[in-house]
Design a protein around this nucleic acid. Structure first.
Lengths: 210, 210
DNA sequence: CTCCGACCATGACATTTGTCAGGCAGCCGG
DNA sequence: CCGGCTGCCTGACAAATGTCATGGTCGGAG
């Protein structure tokens, strides 16, 4: 399969060192793959990529510094020839959508069989797109976020657990306005209360952006 | 290090197939270690262990079927000679305490360096205990759960997101009583409201039991 | 036995939260 | 220009949530 040609150069980004190292070990077993860089933070992806010039970058979504989606966009801008394969724990529908919009070539969840990962890397490197079909269906079903910008912002701030008055102060709004945005979000998500709405929105990946 | 003696037999349990496979690849690089079984659910640990007789079991905490703590206890009861090393994503203070109480010999979080994992396995196999020192300190600081049995039960049920009336019906209590338990929990956790209290309790691993 | 403390349970009360109708600004198609 | 639409903001009202004082039960210490 690999012949004698140059191996595919990989960059790994995952905040859990153990997983990162384990993935490196797994992928290094393949003759046609070589891991040239590992980082543990999203904001280290581009600087490291500039040094090591990988062909494919495997990025986790949940990372400190910069999330995997933002890192994808930054990397695509800095090194357009480098393909991105997003490898994540949670198959949140919105994650897939955002990742593809940011320029990722593939999206794989961490409970896919280990043997398929190397193939996914090869396909991405060959210019193909790789997505979990089940997840793709869910993404289409869930659709794009129904939340308006303000609603999203309020929900995101509300994750901290503060009261409506706290949110109002943080966002420079009236307390009533905050409650109204929350109410709208509750209605749109089909939730029963504030906490529930936050859960639903998070599960669908609607709280990602800035 | 390994010489010519029999290698240490390992069982791996993690719900994320990719991580499981990657860990297997990582550990298989060591001459004195051999992975004899892999499972993706907590309730498969004991049956599989009865077949393959591992020397050390690496268990994740978050697993479907049976959580890693319960699996630890079950495995210790079924095969007392098999040591358990818990490998988890979250360094929740309560997790460590519960794991050790359940009979685990070691506790490692997934952002420890990959190279240390094999050593941890060897130490556990040799009868030593392995714990992340930072986490051990946090555990002592956080102390044992201050929540009473009922409070814990109410909080756990409240995770679903239902209203106080729903909880009252589910637990066969008066609505006022439910609110009172919640209020007590809020006070003890230092939280500002119900949702916040749930977060704090979860972070500390106080919501594990049945 | 009696007291004491811990836990559980309950209803009354104040605060917070969720809902609603309505006002304001921008934007688009006619 | 105008009506219709969407999103943002606000205050008033009803419903939920959180707090408190109180009483009941059980088990251990004195």
């Amino acid at each position: 399969m690999s012949g004698g040609s140059t191996p595919i150069r990989l960059l790994l980004a995952d905040d859990q060192a153990l997983v990162r190292g384990a993935l490196a070990a797994l992928l290094s077993l393949e003759e046609d793959l070589t891991v040239v860089a590992e980082v543990g933070r999203g904001d280290e992806v581009v600087p490291e990529a500039r040094r090591s010039f990988p062909d494919v970058a495997l990025l986790d979504v949940e990372m400190p510094g910069l999330d995997g989606i933002a890192a994808t966009a930054a990397l695509r801008a800095a090194l357009p020839t480098c393909r991105v394969l997003v490898v994540t724990t949670f198959g949140r529908p919105g994650y897939l959508r955002r990742a593809m919009e940011a320029g990722a070539s593939g999206f794989v969840v961490k409970d896919t069989p280990a043997r398929q990962l190397a193939d996914a890397v090869r396909r991405v490197h060959a210019g193909l797109r790789v997505v979990d079909p089940t997840l793709a269906a869910e993404t289409l079903a869930a659709g794009v976020s129904p939340l308006t910008e303000r609603e999203t912002e309020v929900l995101r701030t509300a994750r901290g657990g503060g009261s409506a008055a706290d949110l109002a102060r943080a966002l420079h709004l009236s307390e009533g306005t905050v409650r109204n945005h929350l109410s709208a979000a509750i209605g749109k998500t089909g939730a029963r209360n504030r906490a529930d709405a936050i859960r639903v929105a998070e599960q669908n990946g609607w709280l990602l952006g800035d």
